[in-house]
Design a protein around this nucleic acid. Structure first.
Lengths: 205, 205
DNA sequence: TCATTTCTTGAGCGATCGACCAAGAAGTTC
DNA sequence: GAACTTCTTGGTCGATCGCTCAAGAAATGA
């Protein structure tokens, strides 16, 4: 059997825990954002030298990509998708999204807010790709919300007269505003009140 | 009469238009944020050499301070304060704030969104002061809104049962979310719809 | 055993960062 | 005119940026 079949890797094995290193990098990018996090910040937090970092992740954008994929597996990066996958109604999904956001955004176990929302807002021309990457992610999420609202509308949950795109954009703005508020020090109860107020405009009847 | 009395300045006069230079710097900081804007970016946009910049503004944080003060004098930086100074009711002030934000945030004459909201979200430890400066500004603005709501409550505009702090935090989140949406490409009509939906939760009766 | 493969180390690459300074230029004051 | 003050120019500072590479270390395959 060849190495590729057995899965045993030739050569010197990696000397560090890749998942733990990615977790450390995630925390840094989440806290400071993409550009304000330097390679030496990363190597120090990950406990490795730059050579190992580049061998394992390619370059800085490559590491950030890996971090984004790891983030998607964390509760903080998955709860919105889980809400939309599991809740029976459009309102149930949106309500769960905002209420869980209030809790997740302020969880002291990790940096505040949503990484996708806040990790690449200030970026120099050399790194526009990263800004566009997250911007596109945010905009695609709004489309996902709008599509779910449309489905709910087709199922009779929402009146035909409701502008689902406007509603989706509104909840996206609230979500992103809550993330910013969390980074500015808002606590869970404030964000929960914001969520409830935002949900109060849901068109009923 | 001494020079200080006449206002005539001794020595070689400044060779550039200070206001125009500050305007150019404002545009850059607004677009890219504090840290992603380099001194050489600034000198190029302002049409001066670094020596002139440091002579006129001290250092990079000093220039940013000057830019913030100039921003306060622009419509984009003043409209919220004007709304709260001129509108007769708390609701009138909040409504005007959000409706004008929809227009100002998407005005193609300048960068999208609110500079105070978005110019220093990603920052390295060396520049935390700038992050804290804007964060404190944002949090003070929420206190201003809450105080206005409290006054409106005392005047009978709002029921005693209304939690004005929660309401102020909610509108702050919507405002900041609208700014982020504008930077992500949202147009005026989307933001206006978001503003109207947000205003629909205002407690009546 | 020994060649092969992969990873780590440590030094260092060119470029850019924010900031500074001496010299000269361009004004006012006397 | 000379003295004084302020600003601009051009060069340069040490530090850091993201990144690379040769040499050595540690595993597997034959």
């Amino acid at each position: 059997m060849s190495a590729s079949e057995t899965g045993t890797r030739r050569g010197r094995p990696r000397g560090f825990d890749r998942d733990a290193a990615v977790a450390a990098a995630t925390r840094l990018f989440w806290e400071r954002g993409y550009e304000a996090t330097s390679i030496s910040d990363l190597t120090e937090a990950m406990g490795i030298r730059s050579g190992s970092l580049y061998a394992a992740f390619g370059d800085k954008p490559g590491l950030f990509q890996t971090v984004l994929e790891a983030y998607r597996e964390l509760p903080s990066g998955a709860f919105v998708y889980e809400a939309f996958a599991e809740e029976a109604t459009a309102f149930g999904a949106v309500a769960r999204m905002l209420r869980e956001a209030a809790q997740v955004f302020t969880d002291p176990a990790h940096p505040a807010g949503c990484m996708v929302t806040n990790a690449a807002t200030n970026v120099s021309p050399a790194n526009v790709e990263v800004l566009e990457l997250l911007r596109d992610k945010r905009n695609r999420n709004i489309v996902m919300v709008a599509d779910r609202l449309r489905a709910g509308q087709a199922a009779g949950e929402l009146a035909r007269s409701v502008d689902v795109d406007a509603l989706a954009a509104y909840y996206a703005a609230v979500y992103q505003g809550m993330s910013q508020r969390a980074r500015d020090g808002a606590d869970e109860s404030e964000l929960l009140q914001t969520a409830e107020l935002a949900l109060a405009v849901w068109p009923r009847g």
